[in-house]
Computed example of a mutant assay.
Amino acid sequence: MFQDFNFKLVVVEKLMYDDEVLAPPFRIADVLPSDDPWQYAYDRGLAYQVLPEARAYFSALEIAPALLATVDELVMDGGLRVYQECAPVWDGEDALFDIGSLADLALLPNLRRVLGSEFLGRELQAELAARGIAAD
């Protein structure tokens, strides 16, 4: 359904961690053989990467169109919880979670505002504006 994994993560943040309507909330610690996600990532050379377990979970996660229709605002910020669950060792200083495409906007018919849109770059900000979506 989603073409851009990182865009999907921003939508998941809204529905799972903010609105709490996409349940249960994913916790990387629940699916690892270790109770220390940081150590797990470091021991396997996965620091500053999306852990395979998180990528598999979020890639397979289906979100009903009715839930997607409830999304009217998205927040883009390096401190999103979904990013912490995907990459427990990540400092926000690279392009790991950069959104490359807004093709998935069609899945969010009621999206009206994107906060933190400066993280998208000029081209994607212009695409939001062309669709009548406020880019703050």
Rank of each mutant, 00 (worst) to 15 (best):
V71L: 03
D91P: 02
W90Q: 04
Y48I: 03
A47K: 08
D19G: 02
G92Q: 12
A66T: 08
Y40K: 11
S101K: 12
D35V: 06
P88Y: 01
L96A: 08
A103C: 07
A106T: 10
R81I: 13
V50E: 04
P33I: 02
A95E: 12
Y57G: 09
S34P: 04
D43T: 10
F26E: 04
A23P: 03
L105E: 03
S101N: 10
G79T: 13
S101Y: 10
S59R: 15
A106K: 11
P65S: 12
P25G: 05
A56L: 09
D18H: 06
I28Q: 11
I28F: 06
F58L: 07
F26P: 03
V89Y: 10
D98H: 10
E73Q: 13
E20S: 08
W38C: 14
G100C: 04
L67G: 00
C86E: 07
A41N: 08
L61G: 02
Y42D: 11
S101H: 13
L80W: 06
A56N: 11
Y40V: 00
L51R: 03
A23T: 15
S34Q: 15
V71G: 05
Y42F: 10
F97P: 03
E20I: 00
R81K: 10
V75L: 14
D98P: 06
A64T: 09
F26T: 02
E20Q: 15
L46K: 04
A60Q: 12
L74I: 11
Q84C: 13
P88D: 04
P88F: 01
S101T: 12
L105V: 05
V21M: 12
L32A: 11
P52T: 01
L32V: 05
F97H: 05
V82H: 00
V31Q: 05
A106H: 12
G92L: 09
C86L: 09
G78N: 14
V31A: 11
D72E: 14
E93W: 10
V75P: 00
S34H: 11
L68I: 05
G92I: 07
E73Y: 08
F58A: 08
D77S: 12
V75E: 15
A47R: 14
E20Y: 05
D18R: 05
E53Y: 05
P33C: 02
E53H: 10
E93T: 09
G79A: 15
G45T: 02
Y48S: 13
G45W: 00
Q39G: 10
D19T: 04
A41F: 03
L67P: 01
G79Q: 15
R81H: 12
D94T: 14
L102T: 04
P24Q: 11
E53W: 01
V21Q: 07
G100W: 04
